[in-house]
């Protein structure tokens, strides 16, 4: 089963840092596994917890939230707010058997194309190891 399992990953990335890094990784032709779908946000501070919950219930096996390094946020402090929200989900989701490893928060700056490719590849490998999200096999969410 886990041999055949290919995870679906959704990534909410901020326009100013991680999206630019993803662009750089692509134009630099870095090798990335094709399991990732990017959603470009203006800031990680606008990633409401419900986006992450909805993703996990609707077919994503893992969710990546990635923004600017602390102190670099284009909107001064959006990434700090994102960190509290991910912390909140880390407390809620495991109570219902959703491993907290499925929600990952990273800081990837605009110039860090290689960091982005490595983060994505590592995360996909981790989720492939972890197995599919329970919601995938449920008619009810």
């Amino acid at each position: 089963m886990s041999q055949e399992f290919e995870p679906t990953i959704l990534a909410f990335v901020c326009n100013w840092c991680t999206y630019t890094a993803a662009d750089l990784a692509g134009t630099s032709r870095m090798v990335q596994q094709p399991n990732l779908r990017l959603v470009r946000m203006m800031c990680t501070g606008m990633v409401d917890p419900k986006y992450i919950v909805k993703s996990l219930l609707s077919g994503a096996d893992g969710v990546l939230v990635s923004g600017c390094h602390p102190g670099d946020c284009h909107y001064i402090n959006g990434n700090y707010k994102a960190r509290r929200r991910v912390k909140l989900l880390n407390e809620i989701l495991p109570q219902f058997g959703i491993e907290k490893e499925r929600v990952k928060l990273t800081w990837v700056g605009a110039s860090e194309g290689n960091e982005f490719a490595a983060t994505v590849n590592n995360f996909i490998n981790e989720i492939r190891e972890l197995g599919p999200m329970e919601a995938r096999s449920m008619a009810v969410v």
């Binding site: 419900k50 919950v53 219930l57 909140l88 809620i92 096999s137 008619a139 009810v140 969410v141």
Partner: peptide
């Protein structure tokens, strides 16, 4: 996609979202 879909939809989603929004 799954062969069946419970109606109304988004029930568990609603409750999980409420937990995130007001449990604090």
């Amino acid at each position: 996609r799954k062969g069946s879909l419970k109606m109304p939809t988004d029930t568990v989603f609603y409750h999980l979202t409420r937990m995130a929004h007001m449990s604090m």
